[in-house]
Computed example of a mutant assay.
Amino acid sequence: MAARIGVVTFPGTLDDQDAARAVRIAGAEPVPLWHADTDLHGVEAVVLPGGFSYGDYLRAGAIAALSPVMSSIKAAAAEGLPVLGICNGFQVLCEAHLLPGTLMRNEKRRFHCSVPELVVESNDTVWTCAMTQGERLRIAAKHGEGNYVADEATLARIEANNQVVFRYGVNPNGSAHDIAGVTNEAGNVVGLMPHPEHSVEELTGGSTDGLAFFSSLLRFLTAQAS
């Protein structure tokens, strides 16, 4: 039976259907989750996709972090539910304090769109366990507020705890320490600015490296079930 992976839709979400398609291509079953719904419908993992939740009013992800579905996701994540936040989803996870740091406007105040090279810093997470440390992935990116910011104490802590999951090969947005993605201490919640769901087919993304996120999750779920 295929793993059931929830894909959340907030008002303003753009990439929920892309995320659902990526889940399907990876061999799992996408389950739609609405922002106002507190029921996670028994999913085995959750993806928070990209877009402009609630129009990015106040701060990107700030209102979405207070939505009913996030209350359920926070409780489930504390119990070990795997959660992946992509772009705006990463911003939501930071605003919900499921991940350290925050995302600010890109350093040069310009919207960034490219297929950057990411360096895998940690494969000790649910979403990267099928990857190799030091591996380089090509993952599509598109964001205006992807500049990862944290105070020096937080940066020192996440570096020491191996919570930096990805770094940019070439920093496109001014992120501290070239950080492209981080994890919580337990390794079940991961957020990153680039879009793995846009890099699952050669035809549209020029790379299938994004599939490694979902194959990592499925490897973890299979191991948990055995």
Rank of each mutant, 00 (worst) to 15 (best):
K74Q: 12
N161A: 15
T204G: 01
T102M: 14
C129L: 01
Y57C: 14
R219C: 05
N88G: 11
R138Q: 15
E159T: 14
L118G: 07
R4A: 07
R136G: 00
G169R: 02
N188K: 05
G144P: 03
H41Y: 08
M193D: 07
D37F: 05
V170K: 15
A150W: 00
A176G: 02
A2K: 15
A225F: 08
D209E: 13
A130L: 06
I25L: 11
V8L: 11
E202H: 07
T128D: 06
G187W: 12
A65P: 08
A60W: 01
N88C: 09
V170L: 11
E79K: 15
R167E: 02
R219Y: 00
T102K: 13
E79N: 12
T102F: 10
V7E: 00
L192D: 06
V8F: 04
F214R: 07
R4E: 11
A36V: 08
R157L: 12
L33K: 06
A160D: 14
G144S: 05
I25R: 14
R59P: 03
D18E: 15
P116S: 11
A77F: 00
Y148S: 01
V120W: 00
E159I: 10
N147I: 09
P172G: 01
I73G: 08
V170T: 15
E145T: 00
L99W: 03
G187Q: 05
D124V: 07
I158V: 09
V8M: 06
P100A: 15
R138D: 14
F166N: 07
P194N: 11
D39S: 08
I86P: 06
E197N: 10
S53V: 07
S67W: 02
D16Y: 04
I158P: 00
H195W: 04
I5L: 11
E197I: 05
N173D: 03
E29Q: 13
Q91H: 09
G191T: 01
